[in-house]
């Protein structure tokens, strides 16, 4: 019972803040709504018995990614010549609406069978066991990807030699 109440409350929070993210004229307010949306998604994870993932969601998404995006917005924002209008062509509205109809129709028509397996624990211990046994190669590759993207971001964002005014 409480699960359904929490689910509907969090869904309302997530969808309304996501609507604000894509529609708000002020991009800074859109970024603040993005943080609210991430916290709502963290609540959804808690509802799905994954507290570790919820904590990671708050730390990485709401804490790091949203703040990085807000910094990027503030560094590139020109108050004098800010243009807030959107592309208003038909495809931008038609494609998402058609896709939503298709996806929701498919989901509601499909037969979802309940799993007969044993309930599993989504805690840190089972995740760590999985990463150190089955998914070890993928785990190391993600570490490599993080290093590569860190170096790539530094190289892309720095000033080129000789272009200083």
């Amino acid at each position: 019972m409480t699960e359904s109440v929490f689910f509907y409350l969090l869904s309302g929070l997530v969808l309304s803040s996501a609507w604000s993210v894509v529609r708000n004229e002020n991009l800074f307010h859109a970024g603040l709504s993005l943080i609210l949306c991430f916290v709502g998604v963290a609540g959804i994870y808690m509802n799905l018995d994954a507290p570790f993932l919820g904590a990671m969601q708050v730390l990485i998404y709401a804490g790091a990614i949203a703040v990085l995006l807000l910094f990027g917005f503030m560094l590139t924002h020109d108050l004098m010549k800010a243009r807030h209008e959107r592309n208003q062509h038909l495809a931008g509205i038609l494609i998402p609406v058609l896709m939503a109809l298709l996806l929701v129709g498919t989901i509601l028509n499909a037969q979802w069978h309940a799993s007969s397996g044993q309930p599993v624990n989504f805690g840190v211990a089972s995740l760590a066991r999985r990463y150190m046994q089955q998914d070890l190669v993928a785990f190391e590759m993600v570490a490599l990807l993080l290093l590569a993207s860190l170096m790539g971001a530094v190289v892309i964002a720095r000033k080129e030699e000789g272009s200083r005014e």
């Binding site: 996501a18 894509v22 949203a66």
Partner: peptide
């Protein structure tokens, strides 16, 4: 599915590149 389509709408209609990145995160 609804959240994905909202993000898709943002990607297709936002003009600011940071706004597009936000929609991709959704």
């Amino acid at each position: 599915a609804l959240l994905f389509c909202l993000g898709l709408y943002g990607v297709l209609t936002r003009k600011n590149a940071i706004g597009v990145l936000m929609a991709v995160e959704l």
